[in-house]
Structures are given as C-alpha cells and as structure tokens.
Amino acid sequence: MTKEENNLILAAQKGDRAAFEELIYRYDKNVLGIAYSFIKNNEDAKDIYQEVFLRVFKGINNFEFRSEFSTWLFRITTNVCLTYRSQKKKFAYTSLDDEPDADESEQRSLSELLSDGAATDSKALNSEVSAKIENGIEKLSPQQKLVFTLKHYQGYKIKEIASIMNCSEGTVKNYLFIATQKMRDHLKVFMDMD
C-alpha cells in the first residue's frame, strides 16, 4: 500500500468524502469487472457495485491496515457477489423474465442466429459457444463460479484469490479443478469439433 493510499484511507476514515471517492475510483473498475463477469448482467453488476461501496463506506472505519486495501475491498466484493446470487435464486420463481429452460433458450438463440441472414456461420458458432460457456458457468456452485471468473476472466493468481476469498490455496485449487472438469464435460461437443 502506498503512502498516498494510506493517507486517502485515513482521510476517508475521518469522513472526507473526496478522499473516499478518490480511493475507491482506483479500484472500482476491477470491482465492476468482477461483478459483471460473475453476474453477466449490467443492472445487477451495478447493484453489486453500489452495495460493495456502500459497505466499504460504512465499514472503512473498521479497516485496520492488516491487509492491502484492495484485498479487503475485493473480499467484500466476492461476499456481495455470493450473497447477491443466493438472494436472486431465492426469489427466482417470482421473476417473469427468467428463461424457462436453459436448453430451450440455447436452441432458440441458435436458431435465431442461423435464421439471421447477416450472421456468418463462424459468428453463429462463436455466439453458440459463448452461450454454452455461460450456461455451463451458471451450473457451477457459487464458489466454483467465483473462482472460475476470478481466474479466467479477471486474471488473478491462485494465491490472490485465496486471500480475497479468505480461504486456503488448496481450497481455491479444488474449486478450480472441479470447475474445469464440469466445464470440460459441458463443452465436450465443441472441443471435439475443433
């Protein structure tokens, strides 16, 4: 942590809003990136962003410089991601916009793509693969999904992920191996095509 960042944290702890904003704007793109890659929806990602920084704002006085500020922040982010998801699942039955069946939606998107004269075969295949990956990720447990997105989409090292998620490197590896196995099974058809 730089001296400048330390000063910003101290000022934010004293209630300096400008310092607080300057501090969070150093990392908020990463927070939004984690949220978006986890939730894959702009509005939900923005909800997570707001919840994260509201918790940071309310809890900044409890930050005791025992870890990097970024680690503390990303830990809050992953907690919010995990709980946000579980809240959504709890009330999933109330949403009229939910896709009724994943396989059905895949078929629909593929046929729509194929019926679109402008779409090339390659584009359609890429979209289909992306949709299949997204669908596969959704089937992972929240922790496996989080580790998968932090590793593959955000590029964190396993050690960093362990620190962010407050668990051991072995646990992170375990989540990662299971996620890889599940995803490979899910994407088998595309892998064989290449």
Partner: peptide, 8 residues
C-alpha cells in the same frame, strides 16, 4: 483456448 476466446 476456447474459454479464453469467449471471455466477456
């Protein structure tokens, strides 16, 4: 490679 190519 497939995962990397289809990053969001």
């Amino acid at each position: 490679a497939v995962i990397d190519k289809n990053k969001p």
